[in-house]
């Protein structure tokens, strides 16, 4: 493998060949012929790899062409300002795209008593402590004690968390499995927004997991919805709302949740 930019360095020190530009132009001009020759004559794995590369290039090319075509199109009809009726003073303004749109629908749903305590995932499969924790065996002292655990599932750790002294630390929540944001969806709005997690409200597996902030399927989390601009009936800004995790975060590497 080349170390450093030795070719550039050489060109800087000694300059380029006098016919460099001319040769480059000719090479580019012949590229098509070269490509066609390769496509026809490659055999075996090389051919396979070449076709793969070529296919990707073509997809990109078509995408760019389509984008250019779209730019050239002039729509004759006046753009419909908005699908929802707006008063005269909001008509010519660029409408802010946020999920606020149908917030009243959510509010109405919450008013229904039955809906108040129902969650999208009422039951989840249990997770045993053996699966949740792995025993820490490293270090001389720890080996003897045998009560130190690593949480093997994704966790939420609050911003103000500081580790306890290593001697007393019973649970380790690995940095790589900590999450701060969740992709929160509202089904009726068909809107998904990435929102910061505020806290873990309830882990259905075990109250201890709630305390540890373990994020598993079915966990109720509180998310910060202030970006959505939701407002209560009293006119106060809503900023925390509950959501339930619907995927297995340890499998997917992300957290998907439904707004309750």
């Amino acid at each position: 493998m080349p170390q450093n930019e030795y070719m550039e360095r050489h060109a800087k020190q000694h300059g380029k060949r006098f016919d460099y530009e001319e040769r480059k132009r000719k090479r580019i001009a012949r590229e098509q012929h070269k490509g066609s020759e390769n496509a026809q004559n490659f055999r075996g794995l090389r051919a396979k790899l070449y076709q793969q590369k070529r296919r990707k290039e073509k997809i990109q090319m078509k995408k760019t062409i389509r984008a250019h075509e779209e730019r050239n199109v002039k729509s004759s009809e006046a753009a419909e300002p908005s699908s929802t009726p707006l008063p005269q003073y909001l008509l010519d303004r660029s409408s802010e795209k946020n999920a606020k749109a149908l917030s009243s629908a959510i509010k109405q749903k919450r008013n229904e008593k039955a809906a108040r305590f129902s969650v999208p995932l009422p039951k989840v499969k249990g997770i045993s402590e053996e699966e949740m924790f792995s025993v820490v065996k490293t270090g001389k002292k720890t080996q003897k004690k045998g009560w130190k655990r690593v949480v093997t599932k994704p966790t939420f750790v609050g911003p103000d968390f500081t580790r306890r002294p290593v001697k007393y630390e019973r649970f380790i929540r690995p940095m790589g499995l900590r999450y701060k944001k969740a992709n929160v969806t509202h089904t009726e709005l068909a809107v998904t927004v990435q929102l910061p997690i505020i806290s873990v409200k309830k882990n259905p597996q075990n109250p201890m997991y709630t305390q540890l902030g373990v994020l598993t399927r079915g966990t109720i989390i509180e998310v910060n919805v202030s970006d959505l601009g939701l407002v209560t009936a009293g006119g106060k800004v809503v900023w925390g709302r509950y959501a339930q995790i619907t995927n297995n975060p340890e499998n997917d590497g992300c957290i998907n949740a439904l707004l309750l």
Partner: peptide, 27 residues
């Protein structure tokens, strides 16, 4: 923000907060 508010013009203070609408109030 879904509310109406009534203000006292003399003092510039909020006289009455009128929540009730479930969404933006346009008129």
């Amino acid at each position: 923000d879904t509310t109406l508010k009534a203000w006292d013009v003399r003092t510039g203070k909020l006289k009455q907060d009128l929540p009730g609408h479930k969404d933006e109030v346009y008129a």
